[in-house]
C-alpha cells in the first residue's frame, strides 16, 4: 500500500507517495529525478549513494524511504546554493584533481561535508577514516584527501 512521506529535501519541503519497499535512493532518483545520487552497488558497500539525513551520511540504497519521513535530506543537488555557486568542497575537488570518472564524486563530496561539519580541522587520518565508506577506483583517494585538507585550511 502506498504511503505519503513528507520531508525536507535540499531545503524545500516535499511530499511523495511511495511504495513501502522502496529505498530512499529509488525515491530520489526515480520519483524525484535527482540523479546526482548514484547507485554503485545497491548493498551499502561503496558509498556512491551517500546522502545526508539530518546532516549525517547514510547509504540511501539500503535506507527505507519511509524512514525519511519527517527528516531532512540533502543530496548533491542541494549543495550548490540557489545562485548555482559551488560549495567550497566542490571547488576544492575541482581544483585538486579529486575527480576522474566522477561516479563516486557526489557521495564522496557529501561524506566530506559531513566530516567537516563535525570536525573543521580533521587530521589526515581522520579524513581517511571519514571517507573510508566511499570507494573510488580512479584516483587512489590522494587528491581527494588533499582537496579536503585544503577546504579545512590545511
Amino acid at each position: 500500500m502506498k504511503q505519503t512521506i513528507n520531508f525536507i529535501l535540499n531545503g524545500e519541503p516535499v511530499s511523495v507517495e511511495v511504495e513501502p519497499h522502496l529505498t530512499l535512493l529509488q525515491v530520489l532518483r526515480d520519483k524525484l529525478e535527482l540523479t546526482g545520487t548514484k547507485e554503485g552497488c545497491g548493498m551499502g558497500e561503496c558509498g556512491a549513494c551517500t546522502v545526508l539525513l539530518n546532516g549525517k551520511t547514510v547509504n540511501s540504497c539500503i535506507f527505507p524511504a519511509l524512514e525519511a519521513d519527517g527528516k531532512s535530506v540533502m543530496t548533491i543537488e542541494g549543495l550548490t546554493d540557489g545562485q548555482g555557486h559551488l560549495h567550497p568542497i566542490q571547488k576544492a575537488f575541482i581544483e585538486y584533481g579529486a575527480i576522474q570518472c566522477g561516479f563516486c564524486t557526489p557521495g564522496m563530496v557529501l561524506s566530506a561535508k559531513a566530516l567537516l561539519d563535525e570536525n573543521t580541522k580533521p587530521t589526515e587520518e581522520e579524513i581517511r577514516h571519514g571517507i573510508a565508506g566511499n570507494l573510488c577506483r580512479c584516483t587512489g583517494y590522494l587528491q581527494i584527501i588533499e582537496a579536503i585538507k585544503a577546504v579545512s585550511g590545511q
Binding site: 535527482l34 540523479t35 546526482g36 545520487t37 543530496t75 548533491i76 543537488e77 549543495l79 550548490t80 559551488l86 566542490q90 575537488f93 575541482i94 581544483e95 584533481g97 575527480i99 576522474q100 566522477g102 564524486t105 557526489p106 563530496v109
Partner: peptide, 14 residues
C-alpha cells in the same frame, strides 16, 4: 582542472 569537473561535482553529469 578537468573540463567536466563542475558537471560531475554537482551531480549533473549524465
Amino acid at each position: 582542472p578537468k573540463m567536466d569537473a563542475e558537471e560531475k561535482v554537482t551531480g549533473k553529469a549524465v
